[in-house]
Amino acid sequence: MALDKPYKDIPGTTIFDAEQSRKGYWLNQFCMSLMKADNRERFKADERAYLDQWPMTEEQKQGVLTRDLNRCIAAGGNIYFLAKIGATDGKSFQYMAASMTGMTQEQYAAMMLAGGRSAEGNRYIGEKAATQSNKEQA
């Protein structure tokens, strides 16, 4: 396809475009189901059995079971949908965000308090390690 996708060169970032959306359709629709209290209970009672009711790939299911959000995103997940898993687990959004960065939640929270991750060095793939924080750069 000849569509311009200029966003492919940004480090640590997956743009949820039509291609990702197609890939992640059932993963995201599974997440959506967790907006109902009944479904959250059924999921918590037996995660594997609940997941097996959805036509998801094994990779998507493993991503969910291991709570590896980066793996889920690579498999087509979108963060606003994936956030329903965190809500089901009673985790904050900041916990989920930290889990994707390789930092502890404390390190991540400290980085945010110090002004967040700098854009410097984080604009283009290869420019500099994508996971560096302000602190580390300072």
């Binding site: 991540y108 945010m112 967040g116």
Partner: peptide, 17 residues
């Protein structure tokens, strides 16, 4: 305003921009 909620770049803030 600036924020990124996903991936290894989560937490990006760009005050100047």
């Amino acid at each position: 305003m600036s924020h990124q909620l996903q991936g290894a770049r989560a937490g990006l803030i760009n005050r100047e921009w």
